[in-house]
Each structure stands twice: as structure tokens, then as C-alpha cells.
Amino acid sequence: MNRDPALQALFDSAETELRDDAFTTAVEQRIDRRGKRVIAGRLAAVILLVTLEVLLESPLQQSLGVAAEILSTTLIPLDNEWLAFALSPINSIAGLIGLVLIGTQHLYRRMR
């Protein structure tokens, strides 16, 4: 690789010996602040979940039951018990949603 020696010398001389001063302390403080924010966020999420659980216990259970019923609905009815059992992970609305999600993720990665 051909590097211009004069430019290389200029870059080498521009490399200054930067003293640490307050830099490391600033990084440490940033890490601590970030850690505190993460803990506060998790705490808030737990409090929110507990509150929601208390407030919506009954309606939540009902809607979860309905959602589970819908998601497990068979797409294509199969007479053969073993075949129905083997294909149950994909032969349902949940399976279809899963496949769509995987496909979308795959497509997104290829587009990136």
C-alpha cells in the first residue's frame, strides 16, 4: 500500500500525548449515571406491571385466555392425529405469526 511519507509524518507528529486529567472520571460518572438510569427504568417497569396486575387482574386473565384460544386455532384441519400433532407448531395462527415475523426479520437483514 502506497502511503505518502510526508503525510504519514504529519499524522505521526499530530498524535498528541493526551493527559488523562478528568477523562477517565468523566467516563466512570457516565457509566454510573447510565447504570442508575437502567435500574430506575427496571424499577418503574416492575411497579407498572404490578399496578397493572392489580388493576387488570380479571380482565387481563380473560383477554389472555381469549388470545391463547385465538392463537392456537388450527389453520388447516387434519384428520390424522399424529400429523396434526407434528404440524401443530406451524399449523396455527401463532405459527403463522411466528413465520411472518421470522420472514420479516430475514428480509430486513437482507435489506440492511
Binding site: 498524535e15 498528541t16 477523562f23
Partner: peptide, 11 residues
């Protein structure tokens, strides 16, 4: 590690 690597990254 920050102390050791900070000059390189800052430069």
C-alpha cells in the same frame, strides 16, 4: 482500560 486507551481514541 479507559486510562490506557483514552489517548488513542480521543486522538
Amino acid at each position: 482500560l479507559v486510562r490506557r486507551r483514552q489517548p488513542g481514541v480521543r486522538n
